[in-house]
């Protein structure tokens, strides 16, 4: 920033006082008039300099305020960036988990991993008794809620499904996903009940190992460390070569 040379003005005026030339160029009248005019000019210039200086102080205040605003915005960007990274990471973890589970499910009887391939109106013929079209749609809607991270909605939807279609072949799956949703909501007692139905009512179901792992997690959440470890041990014993069994072994090993 250029500094208005107020000091220069004063220095020159002061130096003028010390310098006394012995000759006069102008007549006295001219000189007096000239002096008066110049005084006027000096005063005007001085005022201008002062005004400029004041304007500059105002401007640098404005600059500081702008910097402040910029800092605030920088901070906001930093925070949003951080939040975005967190969300992306959580979403990635969630989908990896969901993908693994859906793959496991897809290998099973109902083919619910690819709902789009099966129009809801058309009854599926795979496996034993098929879901009614209505039940299938309800199940898919509930699963969709879980997929869009609406654990609360998913839990309610699966529980509705269980009430409305008590004889549907997808009952074990519904219990499993209801348990998973409840676990996400930290409703451990609810999770325990749903997983237990899979584990004890459908011990041969392909989701039974995963349900045992879920049951162990629910028990741990409830503070029942002994029960949780016991469930992990039984899982290793009964399903040693499933992914769930391997996770259980790893956890017990630690």
């Amino acid at each position: 920033m250029p500094k208005p040379p107020v000091w220069l003005l004063y220095v020159l005026i002061a130096s003028a006082a010390f310098c006394r030339p012995a000759f006069a160029i102008f007549s006295d009248d001219q000189a007096r008039q000239g002096v008066a005019e110049l005084r006027q000019q000096v005063q005007t210039l001085g005022e201008r300099v002062d005004n400029l200086a004041r304007a500059q102080v105002t401007q640098s205040n404005d600059l500081e305020r702008l910097r402040e605003e910029m800092r605030r915005l920088t901070g906001r960007i930093e925070e949003l960036q951080y939040k975005l990274e967190q969300i992306e990471k959580r979403q990635r973890d969630f989908y990896l988990d969901l993908d693994a589970r859906l793959t496991a499910l897809g290998a099973g009887a109902t083919g619910s991993a690819a709902p789009a391939a099966t129009p809801p109106a058309q009854p599926t013929t795979q496996g034993a008794p098929a879901s009614s079209g209505n039940a299938k749609a309800d199940f898919d809607a509930a699963l969709g809620k879980l997929q869009s991270r609406d654990a609360k909605g998913a839990l309610a939807a699966f529980q509705d499904f269980l009430r409305q279609h008590p004889n549907d072949p997808q009952i074990p799956q519904a219990h499993f996903w209801a348990g998973t949703a409840a676990l996400q909501l930290k409703e451990y007692e609810t999770a325990r009940r749903h997983f237990a139905r899979v584990v004890f009512d459908h011990p041969k179901h392909e989701l039974a190992p995963d349900a045992m792992l879920g049951l162990a997690n629910a028990l741990q959440g409830m503070g029942d460390e002994v029960g949780s470890i016991d469930m992990l041990k039984r899982l290793v014993e009964r399903h040693p070569n499933t992914p769930a069994g391997q996770v259980a072994r790893q956890r017990l090993g630690r």
Binding site: K3, P4, P5, L12, P21, A24, V35, L38, L52
Partner: peptide, 26 residues
């Protein structure tokens, strides 16, 4: 601003010192 003012102020200084030969500032 500096460039504008400096010559003006400089001339003023010279002229003022010339006038001070009168010994009074009225």
């Amino acid at each position: 601003m500096k460039k504008l003012l400096t010559p003006a102020v400089f001339c003023l200084g010279i002229i003022l010192s010339a006038c001070s030969s009168t010994g009074t500032v009225e």
